[in-house]
């Protein structure tokens, strides 16, 4: 999607700097995770969020305290965006006791009840009814929280997504279905997996309103998020946001991404990068200087290095932990 520069919502300097900082944190964190993976400190599956940062940062800007979120296995960005501690996230990636799941969950399975982050799900599409269930609980308990339920274009073909759409609209559940359409389900492009490639339109069959959003533009994401949140909080039921986005890296660390051209990736990086976008807004609007941004870069780098150090120093879980947390 082409950017529409004239459709900018009002945004303050502070807000722009905040988004810049948060998106940069996710990117640097993921780059560091990729590095630690290469060093053998992180094992198993590791799915990086690089390129898609504007989606979570923009939507978190539309959320309030008490709102919930959950997503698939590509979850590091979501956790950092909802203010979970980078140290705890990185230490979980390295399988250490200091991780959010005490080393027992790994990259794909992290939770924070405190920050209302409900995973971290490895079964494609499973988080969709789970997210609607969290919304069901909020409605039952009579509060006005909403649940952001993220899933990819691949998950959008799972049957349980549509079972959930049906019940979410039937029961007016306060859930926002966020389709992160990064255009590839592992190696299968959207065009190769469906003839109905405008994914938000599938909600029409269930009476759920929705829209497609430029997911590389944090301000467009925030504006769409505010609209969806208002719809949910007003008790009008679910809303679908199809975020058009792009992942720069492979599906996981072991994916060479041969299903797309280098030119395609480079074009997006050059023309659509979400961090460069905010950087340009800050510099061109005279809201920050190169030096200001350099200082932020330094801060973020230090934060990520600190997380990496913590993730290396935190001990592995004691062997007795094998037998804990199975039942309460």
């Amino acid at each position: 999607m082409a950017r529409k520069p004239d459709a900018r919502p009002n945004v303050s300097k502070e807000e722009l700097l905040k988004y810049y900082r948060e998106m940069l944190l996710i990117r640097r964190f993921e780059e560091k995770a990729g590095q630690l993976y290469g060093m053998g400190l992180i094992g198993g599956f590791c799915h990086l969020y690089i390129g898609q940062e504007a989606v979570v940062v923009g939507l978190e800007a539309a959320a309030k305290q008490g709102d919930k979120r959950l997503t698939s296995y590509r979850d590091h960005g979501h956790m950092l965006a909802c203010d979970m501690d980078p140290k705890g996230v990185m230490a979980e990636l390295t399988g250490r006791i200091g991780g959010y799941s005490k080393g027992k969950g790994g990259s794909m399975h992290m939770f924070s009840k405190e920050k209302h982050f409900y995973g971290g799900h490895g079964i494609v599409g499973a988080q969709v009814p789970l997210g609607a269930g969290l919304a069901f609980a909020d409605k039952y308990l009579g509060n006005d929280n909403v649940t952001f339920t993220y899933f990819g274009d691949g998950a959008a073909n799972q049957g349980q997504v549509y079972e959930t759409y049906n019940m979410a609209e039937l029961w007016d559940l306060p859930v926002i279905f966020v389709i992160e359409n990064n255009q590839y389900a592992m190696g299968t492009s959207v065009k190769r997996s469906t003839k109905s490639t405008t994914l938000f339109e599938r909600g029409v069959a269930y009476g759920i309103p929705g829209e497609q959003v430029d997911g590389m533009d944090v301000l467009a994401v925030r504006a769409a998020g505010e609209k969806a949140v208002a719809h949910c909080r007003a008790g009008k039921g679910p809303y679908i946001l199809e975020m058009m986005t792009y992942r720069y890296r492979g599906h996981s660390m072991s994916d060479p991404a041969k299903y797309r051209t280098r030119e395609e990736v480079e074009k997006i990086k050059t023309e659509k990068d979400c961090i460069e976008h905010v950087r340009d807004l800050l510099l061109q609007g005279g809201l920050a200087s190169e030096d200001d941004l350099k200082n932020i870069d330094k801060e973020i780098k230090a934060l990520v290095n600190e997380a990496a150090e913590f993730s290396k120093e935190s001990p592995e879980p004691p062997l007795s932990d094998l037998w804990t947390d199975i039942t309460v």
């Binding site: 919930k68 409900y118 499973a126 969709v128 009814p129 789970l130 997210g131 609607a132 269930g133 969290l134 919304a135 069901f136 609980a137 909020d138 039952y140 308990l141 049957g159 349980q160 079972e163 959930t164 049906n166 019940m167 039937l170």
Partner: peptide, 26 residues
Amino acid sequence: PKRVVDTPITEHGFAGIAVGASWGGL
């Protein structure tokens, strides 16, 4: 009907919703 909830025929979906609800305090 708030506490005795009729579902559509959709076991996969409503089981997932119920598990989510159990995380949400129910």
